[in-house]
């Protein structure tokens, strides 16, 4: 079983990758196995979980369902391209600080879907965030911290100096009981 090989130049995160691969290989396979960009993950390879989401011409796509040959002359963005130099993207910083990435496996896909959302709508409501991300499964977080992180990042991208409420970091103060020792949020900002 040998397959015809295709040679193609993919533009990933603004850099050209000239790679040879079997023509039927998906963008997911080519990114991970030919470009060495293993930041993009897979959870099913059947289009069911959203884990492999990348951006193609700014749109969130499931890289397990797109053939790499379809992406010639198009702009591909992956999690590896989110940082600005050595500085985290506000989405990345918010995810890291809130614990919106627990195991971190669904995180690249969630980050890329969120980036596409925020580029289309800089001030999404919580419901709009949930709608946009409803194709991305996460088993760790229960989704709450992710929604809060996207809201926080959106605010920062709008230039607002807002931080999530103390409840996000500490839980709610137990009613009728002594407040816990500390109550102010002290997130890092050391991107």
């Amino acid at each position: 079983m040998t397959h015809a090989m295709t040679t193609l130049t993919l533009r990933v995160n603004g850099e050209d990758h000239t790679v040879a691969f079997p023509a039927h290989h998906t963008l997911l396979e080519v990114l991970r196995e030919r470009c060495g960009l293993t930041g993009t993950k897979h959870g099913c390879e059947l289009g069911e979980c959203g884990t492999c989401t990348v951006l193609v011409d700014g749109r969130a796509v499931l890289s397990c369902l797109m053939l790499a040959v379809e992406t010639e002359d198009r702009s591909i963005e992956t999690v590896e391209g989110l940082m600005d130099g050595n500085r985290l993207h506000p989405l990345q910083a918010a995810f890291a600080d809130l614990g919106a990435a627990q195991c971190g496996y669904c995180t690249p896909g969630v980050l890329m879907t969120s980036k596409a959302l925020l580029e289309a709508d800089g001030d999404p409501s919580e419901a709009e965030i949930r709608e946009a991300l409803s194709g991305n499964l996460c088993r760790c977080t229960g989704y709450h911290k992710i929604v809060q992180a996207v809201l926080w990042a959106a605010a920062r991208l709008r230039g607002e100096d807002s931080a999530p409420s103390a409840e996000v970091f500490y839980g709610s103060p137990p009613p009728g009981q002594e407040a816990s020792s500390s109550s102010s949020s002290e997130a890092h900002d050391d991107d």
């Binding site: 940082m83 995810f95 990435a101 997130a187 050391d190």
Partner: peptide, 21 residues
């Protein structure tokens, strides 16, 4: 007792965490 960025947080949001695959 204070919230801090998890020590592996940066790797997880940049795609640098290396899972077995």
């Amino acid at each position: 007792g204070k919230p801090f960025r998890r020590v592996d947080g940066r790797a997880k949001v940049t795609g640098q965490t290396r899972f077995a695959d």
